[in-house]
């Protein structure tokens, strides 16, 4: 090893150090709740905080449910829009004007997330509140609309806000893949007398792995988003199928509860174990996304 490499080595080790230490911190701090409750911390929905450690009991199922539910809402909204938007930019916008559509989404992708949060509280939530009221009064027999909550702070608010936040990210991945489809395939499709729709269907089939990868990575982002979600989701221990019910996500639970956690004996550990779950979900989803992406680009 040359001197330069030896000099640089500690810095690159720090990169690994951060990840390993993080994992260690979350595992070690989760031990005491695991010893007390076992897996029940993940499989039950209870939150009994008490000055008396004997009575304390925690289960974060509601937060896990909320995380998956809101991310799913976000993806269902995002995926078709991201695909349609990519096709729009690549197929319908002349070269000179493409940038004009891409820059706003780039701004959006990097914008401080708290700005989505403040917008969500003052614009999105009130809008959903009226909608929620209407849907409940007319369609409450459908489980999706079965919860009466005219405040608007809900899974739906969180899911919609997340969809707006991850859209630029998902659409840039899909757009770049769609744009990179070799011209020869587009020419082939066109030469067969196909319409724009039929051509796009072939080309989107060609980039299916990229679409899958961006879905996974967008899901990973949605799962980890904290402040904007915690401002609009209503923060309640709830497991409800209705879009209008308030709930928790793991990250909003952490943001909300850690402030007073140290008063209690087991709550910090319960929250670290929630963080561990988020760690695991994030790692699995992101690594899966990266694997799909990499395998694809190596074809």
């Amino acid at each position: 090893m040359d001197k330069f490499k030896i000099f640089l080595f500690p810095f690159v080790s720090a990169v690994f150090g951060v990840l390993i230490l993080m994992l260690a911190v979350f595992v070690l701090n989760s031990v005491s709740i695991f010893q007390r409750e076992g897996l029940a911390i993940y499989t039950t929905n209870v939150w009994i905080a008490s000055e008396n450690p004997e009575e304390e009991y925690y289960g974060i199922l509601a937060a896990t449910y909320g995380t998956l539910y809101t991310s799913l809402i976000a993806l269902i909204i995002v995926l078709p829009i991201a695909i349609g938007f990519s096709v729009f930019i690549v197929d319908f916008v002349p070269e000179k004007f493409k940038e004009a559509f891409i820059i706003p989404t780039d701004i959006m992708a990097g914008m401080p997330t708290i700005l989505f949060g403040i917008w969500g509280v003052f614009y999105l939530v009130p809008a959903i509140s009226g909608f929620a009221d209407f849907m409940y009064k007319n369609f409450s027999f459908i489980p999706l609309f079965s919860y009466y909550n005219p405040t608007g702070f809900s899974y739906l608010a969180a899911g919609m806000l997340l969809s707006i936040m991850v859209l630029p990210f998902a659409s840039s991945l899909i757009r770049e893949a769609y744009r990179a489809v070799p011209e020869v395939y587009r020419e082939a499709a066109l030469s067969l007398g196909l319409t724009r729709f039929e051509v796009a269907r072939i080309l989107l089939g060609y980039i299916k792995p990229s679409i899958l990868a961006s879905t996974l990575l967008a899901f990973g982002r949605a799962v980890g988003e904290t402040v904007a979600v915690s401002l609009v989701i209503g923060n309640a221990f709830n497991i409800n199928p209705s879009l209008f019910a308030p709930g928790y996500t793991i990250s909003s639970l952490l943001a909300n509860q850690f402030g007073n956690a140290f008063v209690y004996e087991y709550m910090p550990s319960a929250l670290f174990s929630a963080g561990l779950a988020l760690f695991a979900i994030g790692l699995v989803v992101n690594v899966a996304g990266l694997i799909v992406l990499r395998r694809w680009t190596h074809v």
Binding site: P182, V184, Y185, E187, A188, A189, L190, S191, L192, G193, L194, T195, E198, I202, G205, Y206, K208
Partner: peptide, 30 residues
């Protein structure tokens, strides 16, 4: 384009489709 078929410099069957689907896709669409 149905009346005028084309073959290109770079062989370009749709790589993600089967041999069968490569032939039938446009047949069905048209």
């Amino acid at each position: 384009r149905r009346q005028v078929g084309m073959v290109f410099q770079i062989p370009n069957p749709f790589p993600h489709m089967s041999i069968y689907d490569n032939i039938t896709y446009a047949v069905k669409c048209n």
